[in-house]
Design a protein around this nucleic acid. Sequence first.
DNA 1: TATATAATGTTATAATATAACAATATGTTA
DNA 2: TAACATATTGTTATATTATAACATTATATA
Lengths: 163, 163
Amino acid sequence: MKTAFLDKGHDHGDCIQAALNAAEVVCQKQKARLTPIRRRVLELVWRGHAPVGAYELLQILKDEGFNPAPPTVYRALDFLIQHGLVHRISSLNAFVGCSRPGDVHDGTFLICRTCGTAAEMLDQTVLGTIGDMALSNKFSLSHVSVEAVGVCVDCRDGDRTEV
Amino acid sequence: MKTAFLDKGHDHGDCIQAALNAAEVVCQKQKARLTPIRRRVLELVWRGHAPVGAYELLQILKDEGFNPAPPTVYRALDFLIQHGLVHRISSLNAFVGCSRPGDVHDGTFLICRTCGTAAEMLDQTVLGTIGDMALSNKFSLSHVSVEAVGVCVDCRDGDRTEV
DNA sequence: TATATAATGTTATAATATAACAATATGTTA
DNA sequence: TAACATATTGTTATATTATAACATTATATA
Ligand SMILES: [Zn+2]
Ligand SMILES: [Zn+2]
Ligand SMILES: [Zn+2]
Ligand SMILES: [Zn+2]
């Protein structure tokens, strides 16, 4: 598998650009409208690899001259989640960009409690195992959330650079 | 493995009694005090197998003549979680009794969206797989939450008896 | 009993999220 | 284009979940 955590020296501008490009493609395919607010919220969610709270997004938008109320942000987030562009991290009440947009799927994350980074595990093994468990319980599975908290290797090695 | 979902005809009084007994044992071992409020909250969490919200517990306690404020309930829940007697279901902002008290562990649940039942998967395979993923990412794992939503077999078969 | 610690009471408020309805923009059809 | 339907956003208010801060009471220990 590809490693879930990106190198701390990676060019994050590329991450943002890739996310926005993918969003354009996804929305075109699904005839959905990536309006300015939705696009801006996606961009802000991609500020880094740590999940961001809705009210944090709200504050940034206010600072930028938009004057949104909470529903504006929550609607944009709902849209982005529905279209597989963002995941909600329920243990943090926060939102993070999807690492594999365009292919709607459940989120499985390793979350570093030190730098905040939420790395999406793109491997299918975990979901496969849970699928097996569901089967053996005759449980009809809709969606799964896996949130594993700990410390990433960079932070364990004493390197606290925020991503 | 034992099946995660109990038969709908099971004697739930036994579940409650077992939970309270186990709590006594756990608290004695850990020299922790199972005070009346803590005990009552645990009992209420065990009203059924569906997670219960903190304010729902609060309302029940009020109806019973206690007059607790939110911190009372949250403190009791925190205590019960710390001692491995209750799990928090973060996708529901709710709390459910632990099916294997006395052995502090991460919660892995199948949650039926129809009857609300949250069945704890006691099998270690899922956590083992996640542990492997963490290892291969050099991620130092602290705790894991697995919440799988779907429909349980009883509800799928059209039997909507609440548990 | 005196003292320290743990637990609970109490008040206020923070943080997260949604309901309800109005206004505007966009797409579609006549 | 005009008329209409639908989607999106604006706006106000409020619901829901959770915690901070400090006072009081209960319990354990010396
Ligand atoms: Zn990046
Ligand atoms: Zn994803
Ligand atoms: Zn039961
Ligand atoms: Zn458990």
